[in-house]
């Protein structure tokens, strides 16, 4: 089921723009494409479930949970494909921190508490207006973001021989849901989105202590599937737009948060 979702969400992001283009052509619209390059900063801090493989190769949930904190700087390019329809590819650089992962399948068990690991981000956003009523506009929006951490190496302390471990984290986040936007003001457009959000990740750790080697993989899933995101788009000038958004992710036993700020330039 998780594999199906992993395939479906990226596909959705690929197929939706294609369908929209096809519809535009059929209806004979003549559309001038707009471009808005942007730079942004995003942060999230979420509780995650950790899974390890058992002896039968099945994934089972660890007793201990963890947290994933991630900060990222993004460069985006918003394509206005037609009125109310935008597609925004994103690239970026992230520092992501899995809090205290314990690897017990390696020859020497390891508790990894190494702080943030740098890595690259790639992703895309899609937004389509569907209904306009008076000053309100209802649309649908989705985002997918993939982080690939750089491989890091740490020495293993305390043993009587030299040894090291190498680790590499990944995560994939998908979000899709409706957005309601208020268009009643001149240059400030508040909005609220309620979206379905999933976070998957993995962390691979390799151990090499002279002739003693091992590898262990952890799978990670974010807790909480619904995200409430109030935000605002503020047109500072005709050419400069500021977007700010907060994310609230309720989950069993608490609430997680995220935030986003993006500055976009209209070309």
């Amino acid at each position: 089921m998780k594999t199906v979702r992993l395939i479906l969400i990226p596909l959705l992001f690929l197929v939706l723009p294609t369908l929209c283009f096809a519809q535009s052509e059929k209806e004979g619209f003549v559309q001038t494409m707009t471009f808005k390059p942007g730079i942004g900063f995003e942060y999230f801090n979420r509780e995650v479930n950790i899974f390890s493989k058992n002896e039968d190769g099945e994934w089972v949930e660890d007793e201990a949970d963890s947290r994933l904190k991630s900060y990222f700087l993004t460069l985006s390019l918003e394509f206005g494909l037609q009125a109310g329809f935008t597609f925004t590819p994103i690239i970026g650089y992230s520092v992501s921190d899995y809090d205290s992962l314990i690897f017990r399948k390696l020859p020497f068990s390891i508790e990894l508490d190494v702080g943030g690991i740098n890595g690259y981000l790639i992703g895309a956003e899609l937004k389509k207006s569907l209904i306009s009523a008076q000053d309100f506009e209802i649309g649908a929006a989705g985002q997918i973001m993939y982080y690939a951490g750089r491989k890091q190496e740490w020495s293993v302390p305390g043993l009587n021989v030299e040894g090291s471990i190498q680790g590499r984290p990944y995560w994939l986040r998908g979000t899709i849901g409706p957005v309601i936007e208020y268009k009643g003001f001149d240059s400030v457009f508040p909005y609220l989105s309620v979206s379905y959000n999933r976070l998957w990740g993995k962390f691979t750790l390799e151990q090499e202590i002279l002739d003693l080697t091992g590898e262990e993989e952890k799978k990670v899933t974010g807790k909480g599937a619904v995200v409430l995101s109030p935000g605002v788009i503020y047109e500072l000038t005709g050419a400069l737009t500021l977007k700010g958004e907060a994310s609230v992710i309720p989950r069993k036993g608490g609430i997680d948060f995220g935030a986003l700020v993006r500055v976009m330039l209209s070309l």
Partner: peptide, 22 residues
């Protein structure tokens, strides 16, 4: 040989922190 056995090191997860980065 390699020394006097240390059961803690053999069994308890070894903590790796930022200072262990190579």
């Amino acid at each position: 040989g390699y020394g006097r056995i240390n059961m803690e090191k053999a069994l308890v997860p070894i903590k790796i922190t930022t200072s262990s980065r190579q």
